[in-house]
Design a protein around this nucleic acid. Structure first.
Lengths: 241, 241
DNA sequence: GCGCACGTGAACAGTATGAACTCAAGGAGT
DNA sequence: ACTCCTTGAGTTCATACTGTTCACGTGCGC
């Protein structure tokens, strides 16, 4: 049961400094039934003003989609200021930042969901629907441990994103993790053969997954020249955003 | 892998005005492996002081068990003040209050888990283990959407104690015990077929239960590469304890 | 005693893997 | 400048495990 079936849609504020991304997010919001994008802000300050303005107008925002990477304030600061004003509005972080400290801090600032760019519409919609289910579960009468548990369970990310056939989530994670830790350690890139050896799998398999990462823009691929023979391709984790 | 196996235990502060309840909670904490109750506070102010004192002493608190019903301050106010000081310590609400507004506000104050009195030790331990899994998942390298999703999943209750249909508690315990003793013996992981043979059941059944453990975050699953043919999955106990 | 609900496992279709192969691309030698 | 030669890219396919379906006990309620 969606709480919005019979009522007004959830009012969403998008905060993102890149107009193209902001528009894309607003468009995504509009495509999810029961949600409505009521405003777009291009900076943290503007977001806070917009939040106040909507409240003053008697149409408070229910949900904020907050980019972490803003020109004036860090997203975490925006979240803290929102809380500092006593607002309990829900916040979903949308960001390319992969820093674990940011994730932990976000959680402590009452950010209930965390979405890393790039993402598909399905992944996006899943977060919004989780928000909807969470609040729907909390509308009825008194709280029991069960009702609270099932409400919190709505915020639980469901094992997402259908992979193309022939790929296994765990294997993809292994390879993505390897590339990411390489990138974090400044280690440069690896060829399919090197990845295969490092993870104890065949070159064919490593290549299949690397090719997927490359095709989906998560990894870059360039030929390694200078040696004899056909040039080897080397793969590296794509820079965030 | 539990983060606490090789390091110090998680440091827990209990805030509850009733001495009997406070002592009971402290006792429960001590009974969960990897957790240690470092202080008990009988009021909100005392809790805040204790939090500061521990930080000043270089032994910051990792987790606060916070009663909502305190004599001096409401638990929500305590949480807000903790956040106001810039602390990102984790907070689990423990309360008899069944007010839904409190639950919603608690979430916005960065309270990640909510436990309603009265509760059993198993329910209590589940929350603490969720906290442990959340932080263990966030220790490694850079974040991916997958790693963040599985970390957040650790904070969300698997929909109540009711097992999914088709599963029986005794069988689940058998399999969980096997994986746990494997982990304790440093034996590495087992495939569904190996578990089935060890416990004299069919692979299909073993898989059903292993899949449940994996989906609920209690067990990890990785493909076993290197041989021809479709890879076998091997399961290993993941949760604390 | 009869039916109904439910957990189990045999059988089967589906699918990810790596060995072995062919093909492609660049440098080295003349 | 042309060919040779080296070396990895990309593909094919047998293979082994996965994931699902469905008929069969088994126990419980009526």
């Amino acid at each position: 049961m969606s709480a919005r079936e019979a009522g007004r849609p959830w009012r969403v504020l998008v905060i993102d400094d890149e107009p193209i991304m902001a528009a894309a997010h607003a468009d995504f919001v509009a495509r999810v039934p029961g949600f409505e994008c009521v405003a777009v802000a291009g900076s943290g300050q503007e977001g806070l003003r917009e939040l106040d303005a909507q409240s003053a107008a008697g149409t408070p925002v229910d949900l904020v989609l907050l980019d972490m990477n803003l020109p004036d304030l860090h997203g975490l600061d925006v979240a803290r200021r929102i809380r500092g004003r006593g607002s309990t509005v829900d916040i979903i972080a949308i960001t390319a930042v992969r820093d674990l400290a940011v994730v932990r801090t976000a959680v402590s600032a009452g950010i209930t969901q965390y979405l890393i760019k790039p993402f598909t519409f399905a992944m996006f919609a899943a977060k919004l629907e989780g928000f909807d289910r969470f609040h729907s579960s909390l509308t009825a009468g008194a709280a029991t441990q069960d009702s609270i548990d099932s409400a919190f369970a709505a915020l639980r990310p469901q094992t997402s994103a259908a992979l193309p056939k022939g790929l296994i989530r765990e294997t993809l994670e292994q390879i993505a993790d390897l590339l990411q830790s390489d990138a974090a350690a400044g280690r440069g890139s690896r060829s399919a053969t090197e990845v295969a050896e490092a993870l104890d799998m065949s070159r064919v398999t490593a290549r299949r997954y690397l090719e997927h990462l490359s095709a989906s823009g998560q990894a870059g691929r360039r030929p390694r020249h200078g040696t004899r023979g056909r040039p080897e391709f080397e793969y590296a984790w794509a820079a965030a955003d």
